[in-house]
Design a protein around this nucleic acid. Sequence first.
DNA 1: GCGTTATCGTTCGACATCGAATGAATTACC
DNA 2: GGTAATTCATTCGATGTCGAACGATAACGC
Lengths: 161, 161
Amino acid sequence: MLGEKRVAGLRVNLESMALVSNIHRASGFIRDHFERAILKDADLHWSAFVTLWCLWIYGELETRRLAAEAGVAKSTLSSILNMLEARKLVRRRTNELERRLVIVNLTASGAEVISGLFPKFNAEETRIVERLSPKQIQAATEAIRLILATIIELDGIAEDE
Amino acid sequence: MLGEKRVAGLRVNLESMALVSNIHRASGFIRDHFERAILKDADLHWSAFVTLWCLWIYGELETRRLAAEAGVAKSTLSSILNMLEARKLVRRRTNELERRLVIVNLTASGAEVISGLFPKFNAEETRIVERLSPKQIQAATEAIRLILATIIELDGIAEDE
DNA sequence: GCGTTATCGTTCGACATCGAATGAATTACC
DNA sequence: GGTAATTCATTCGATGTCGAACGATAACGC
């Protein structure tokens, strides 16, 4: 196998370790940075922002799908929606044809909040990748997408059918 | 600026958005995957594992430095160390020359745990990047490293001197 | 048709994490 | 040299997050 070194008597793949470690490290720094620099003023944490963003992009969404898109457990989404609904940024309603489902959508003021916030967010995204060439950005995105697909496949096979 | 598109009347840099979003998404999946597949048996969560790993690599470390290396707040590290110390995996002692400092190191059984766990961890790291070529891995690692450096510089300038 | 399963969203309890407050130890200042 | 300011790690309170348990609704089997 490529990239295997011996460290302290153990075979170690340093390259894969560095990549995984850096992904995780970057994620934490990015989250902290955005929460402090942009989300704090709106009094939103990362997951609440992503929730609003998903609703903005997809329009109305069932909670189950919304939880998956936002990357949180459905119980977590429930409490996020409680908070957002209390602030009148989103609205919940039951699907009358399938009364187990709950459909969520932005209110007018919810749409106002996210459309005011997103440009700042995107500007900051652009800023933190400004030292990368377009090619580097695309290559990194593609690489991470491959990793994601691999994990999802592994977990999917392991757990389900 | 490169990569700017118009979406719903807003200028959006889709490439930077996709990269940031994927980094965060991958981080969550990786964390969940490793905690379920490897760390659950040892009854350790991610941060506790990273803490042990840092001590294994660096040898003894002051708590302040250890918190930074592990990527957690110092208060979080305190509770992690309480747990690890209760399990006799690490040891704390005050530095006698500078009695404010606390120095942490692995016990024998702590070293045993991490040295038994790491090969599995690294094997899984290698597995989730197996679809990437060595060049892709290095390119992605370098790209993320650049992002990290950019954020740290931004935050450092903003907050400190 | 009616009980059994399956599938929703929500609630609940446990816990990881953080920031601010605290106390101990050291340094700086006059 | 003694007081003030600084710098540690820890504790404490608040909160975000998850998984399991729950109740409601729908689909299935016979």
